[in-house]
């Protein structure tokens, strides 16, 4: 019954993340936006692997007569979660460095490089 509802959630969270990146001014908020896009894409990958009535692909011997959920997207998602936390940490540490040098974390004030 859930049908396409997870995909709607994916679209909403990617959209919210892009909105934050396009219109909000705080550097830490931008990091949250990247996180939100990443959550959406992780949900997208997991939903792709979902098969109705399947079992989790963690048994060495599957119960007879039952399909398994696809394991590959789950492996991809694990990789992407780990990469995501590394990205967040790097972005946030740079935001702290910008605060140290510029005294602000507003996007439209921290722009010495232009033109």
């Amino acid at each position: 019954m859930i049908g396409n509802f997870p995909y709607v959630t994916v679209a909403v969270s990617i959209g919210c993340g892009l909105y934050i990146l396009m219109f909000q001014k705080n550097l830490i908020k931008l990091a949250i936006g990247i996180n939100l896009i990443e959550s959406g894409i992780n949900l997208f990958l997991i939903t792709l692997g979902y098969r109705k009535g399947g079992v989790a692909p963690i048994y060495t011997q599957a119960p007879a007569g039952k399909a398994m959920v696809l394991p590959t997207p789950q492996a991809l998602t694990l990789t992407s979660i780990v990469i995501g936390v590394a990205t967040s940490a790097l972005v946030l540490s740079m935001a702290m460095m910008i605060y140290k040098h510029y005294g602000t974390i507003e996007v439209d004030k921290a722009r010495r490089l232009r033109g």
Binding site: I34, V91, M94, M97, I98, H101, A110, R112, L113
Partner: peptide, 21 residues
């Protein structure tokens, strides 16, 4: 060079955000 000046960090931040998108 970001420990000494602010501009490299700013450039790096911008690059990181666009490349993660």
């Amino acid at each position: 060079k970001g420990t000494e000046r602010g501009e490299p960090v700013e450039a790096g931040f911008k690059y990181m955000v666009v490349s993660s998108i």
